[in-house]
Simulated scan of single mutants.
Amino acid sequence: MHLNENTKILGRRILLVPYEARHVPKYHEWMGSETLRQLTASEELTLDEEYEMQRSWREDADKLTFIVLNAELYEREQDEIAAMVGDTNLFLHRDPDSNLLVGEAEIMIAEPDARGKGFGREAMLLMLKYAQSQLNLDKFEVKIDMDNITSLHLFETFQFVETRRVEVFHEVTLERPITPDWVSWLNQQVDLRIESF
């Protein structure tokens, strides 16, 4: 999606930047981990396929993605690649039953030493707030591996509610309608600061 191609989102401890070709080699290195692929329900791709995937994230109108940077490390090193710790994505689709516009959210903190520090929580809150303010969405949803207790708990703290389990895919779906009350809650959780470049 071109919406965020010149957008940087400034958090307290993280920065969100558009996923560019220069980020692909490190991202590809992360996705060499079978554990990460399993947790994110991803397939192993060649480096060329990873570059093609990055292009589709940039070009396709139904996909929005940011790379998550450790803000302190970026400030110190001035190197986006060194500061990369993960990514956050949104897939847009229409609910087949209600025709509501849905943003399916994903968060991955890939760097092991960056986990458990609140980076994923802050990155996801910023992504939800950005998408809610920029896109005409009706609800958010997430699909999480049943064993990924950390992610399930994270989205429950965001007031997402389980709506279905698919045992064959070992997957839980949680949803959060975008209501005025929830937007008010979201505004209390995070201050959206956007910088254009």
Rank of each mutant, 00 (worst) to 15 (best):
E20P: 06
S56M: 11
R55M: 11
A61E: 14
R165N: 07
E75Y: 04
E77M: 06
D87P: 03
L16K: 05
S33M: 08
E175Y: 00
E52L: 10
E43F: 02
R94P: 06
T40F: 02
V172G: 13
G116A: 07
E44D: 11
E106T: 04
P112E: 14
L186A: 09
M31R: 11
N6C: 05
Q159G: 02
N187L: 13
S33Q: 10
D95F: 01
E29F: 12
M108L: 07
R121N: 03
N187V: 08
W30P: 06
L135G: 09
V168I: 09
K26I: 10
T163M: 00
E75I: 02
Y51Q: 13
T150V: 13
T40K: 00
D113C: 08
I9E: 02
D48K: 05
E171R: 12
R58H: 13
L125Y: 10
E72G: 14
L90R: 02
E171W: 03
M84V: 10
F160I: 00
E77Q: 04
T35G: 08
F140G: 09
Y74N: 05
E122D: 05
E20M: 08
D138C: 13
I81V: 15
D62A: 14
I107N: 03
R12N: 11
L16C: 12
L45S: 07
I67Q: 13
N89M: 04
L154P: 09
L92M: 13
E122K: 05
L137G: 03
L101F: 01
H170Y: 14
W185H: 14
G11W: 05
L174A: 00
H153F: 03
D138H: 14
S42F: 04
Q189P: 06
G120E: 02
L137N: 06
R13H: 14
Y130A: 09
V190I: 15
E141A: 01
R76C: 07
R164L: 01
S151N: 04
E167K: 12
A82V: 01
S42A: 06
V24G: 05
V172Y: 05
R76H: 09
P18K: 02
W30Y: 13
H153I: 03
L192V: 09
G11D: 11
E106W: 01
T35C: 07
I109M: 04
V17G: 04
A82Q: 14
G118K: 00
P177A: 06
L15E: 11
Y19P: 03
V161P: 00
E5I: 04
H2W: 03
K63F: 10
L10W: 02
L47V: 04
F160K: 00
A41R: 02
M146P: 07
I67C: 15
Y27Q: 08
E52F: 12
D60L: 11
T179K: 10
N89P: 01
L10C: 08
M146V: 09
E5A: 07
E72W: 12
P25N: 10
A41E: 08
V161G: 00
A110T: 06
L154M: 15
R164N: 01
N99A: 08
R165P: 01
T157L: 08
R58P: 07
E141T: 00
T65H: 08
H93V: 01
Y27H: 13
K129M: 12
L100D: 12
R176S: 00
E43S: 05
